[in-house]
Design a protein around this nucleic acid. Structure first.
Lengths: 353, 353
DNA sequence: TTGAAAGCGCTACCAG
DNA sequence: CTGGTAGCGCTTTCAA
């Protein structure tokens, strides 16, 4: 028997209040069967002893929890944070707690964090990540706990999938740029080995090819973040390829790109147009404000919650897939290409926001 | 006896492997006493059953945890995120897990989240927050768990305090501006009822008064964030007070202020100088780059960890107070005041970074 | 309205 | 090296 440091427990409170642990438990759980005078006595005892219920014991005894696990690739990127916040807020308003873990785009981290959450017997698990692990899906399927994947994975019995239609989003961005006369476009990405990121890159290439077979492209990558965007831009500018526009995999990196361009005296959008993806708040606040593709994080957080918790109305979760369509947001960072002998004539279909 | 949904447990594994639960436990905890062949058999059984140890049962049995609790006021503000990340990373490297909660600057949230963490019997609790609750300190003192407060609270037996010397930092900022000829300064804050925020406001006023009794000041406030900064600036610009410089309580809001100024055609720093506080990464990436006061988040995260965990070298935590001195970072958002008949002569002591 | 007691799944001690 | 077993603190029957 270990020397447990645990000091205050139900027993202590029960003793002090002159009742059984069962009664204390009832009081603490608001079971309305307890006589008022008893309840008061118990509450007083608990208060005086500074009693705090041991939540591990509680979960163990109950055999089920009201905690949701959330995995995100990069909390620093406001895109992930926004989804997290929406999900957290939905959870709280329905009486659920939430615990988050950062994976830093590393699949071992994803796996170990997922294990941790399973160990905690979370009531549901949301994986809002770009990385994946081959075995993870199987493991998660077997646990029977409700799962929602954003961006990766495939639907299963207990697994719902939310994904963004990057193809459509990227197409809108590229076609818009093309309409402005751009025919030499660069793509700034990160972690090209990750499927969702890779998909944006591929669809970028396809969209460009679709617009014009003669358009030129170039691809660079950094890490996800302001600094990564800046580095990528630096690399791009010294590559010999002279883009008329830079399409970034997300807004966060785009802000870094803007910074580097400014440092090198390149004007945006006069010399080079820049686009982001996600439409984070910062996209409106940077200079120039970013043209980007809007992904509704608020709504995504909501959807994730609803598919994580059984009774949250809706049909019972039955491994479905949900597709989200990004919307083009035109701001200040994009413009007509200079000397645009080929400035397309169909710009009128695009309006600034 | 509740119908527990729990399917896989030590017992199942033990049975399948033909050993006792004790042995399974030993294998899973890497106690090197187990015969290799047995170990292999157990591991195989666990694997096949997709067994995941119930961490609640584990914590309960062990009576102590290796999880640290972290409370922050606003994870969206990179300042808080940076401290969190540093702390998390220190924790991970020493084999600790971490769980975070956002308080949104609300003291009820602070209290309820703190309760939650106590319920989880965290090994240590870091409160990186600006809000406070009268009773909380007492409650925390009684729990005996190691606590570190950043920005608020007072040292106790088990409570260490880390704080920033806002007075010095603010003084550096104001004196610098004064040296550039500014004598009409506005302060943009948030949550003026919160002590740490209030302190920056007060020290702002004092610093200005110290420089010149005739200098004029004005105070506005928004919410902590980009949008809040913009709103505050909007209010300020329509207030009739015409500042030559705007001192912001933090960088995050300052970026919002920059945005509004740009929208209204006010040039920075030609027309108005702007300063932030914290020196978050974004301060370098916005336009113009922010003059600000650097607070070493990395170091703070480190310090917090060391004071949370006993053996992390250092003398045993004995309710101490740690003071951090902010350093002025001059960038592009500040300049000489126009028509500066009073441009002070002591600018040469300030150097751009 | 209350108490007694059987677990929840795991760890750690004691024997062997 | 391994098994038996007494808890850890709480919830939830079942009886009273």
């Amino acid at each position: 028997m270990p020397k447990h440091a645990e000091l205050m427990n139900l027993n202590a409170v029960a003793k002090k209040a002159g009742v059984s642990t069962a009664t204390v438990s009832r009081v603490l759980n608001d079971l309305k069967v307890v006589k008022n005078s008893t309840r008061a006595r118990v509450l007083k005892a608990a208060e005086e002893l500074k009693y705090h219920p041991n939540l591990h014991a509680r979960s163990l005894a109950r055999g089920k929890s009201r905690t949701l696990g959330i995995l995100v690739s990069n909390m620093e990127n406001p895109f992930f944070f926004d989804i997290f916040r929406a999900l957290e807020s939905a959870a709280h308003s329905r009486g659920y707690e939430v615990v988050v873990a950062n994976t830093d785009y590393r699949s071992e981290q994803l796996v170990s964090s997922a294990r941790l959450m399973i160990g905690w017997r979370v009531a549901g698990l949301a994986a809002i990540v770009s990385e994946m692990d081959a075995d993870l899906m199987q493991v998660l399927t077997d646990t029977r706990i409700p799962i929602v994947f954003y961006d990766v994975g495939t639907p299963r019995k207990n697994i719902t999938n939310v994904r963004v239609d990057y193809r459509k989003g990227m197409k809108k961005v590229v076609e818009y740029l093309y309409s402005l006369g751009h025919a030499r476009m660069a793509f700034v990405g990160h972690h090209s080995t990750l499927e969702p990121i890779n998909e944006r890159r591929k669809t970028f290439l396809e969209s460009v090819a679709h617009c014009s077979p003669s358009a030129e492209t170039h691809i660079v990558a950094g890490t996800d973040g302001l600094e990564g965007g800046r580095q990528a831009a630096r690399e791009l500018l010294s590559s010999g390829f002279h883009p008329t526009s830079i399409i970034c995999v997300n807004d966060f990196m785009a802000v870094g790109v803007l910074r580097e361009l400014r440092d090198q005296g390149v004007r945006v959008p006069e010399d080079i147009s820049v686009t982001g993806f996600d439409n984070i708040k910062l996209a409106e606040f940077c200079s120039p404000a970013l043209t980007t593709a809007h992904i509704p994080r608020e709504q995504i957080g909501q959807i994730i919650f609803e598919n994580l918790v059984p009774d949250a109305k809706k049909e019972q979760f039955t491994g479905r897939e949900i597709l989200i369509d990004p919307e083009l947001m035109v701001r200040e960072s994009t413009g007509l290409v200079r000397n645009a002998q080929a400035a397309a004539g169909n710009q009128e279909k695009f309006v600034a926001d």
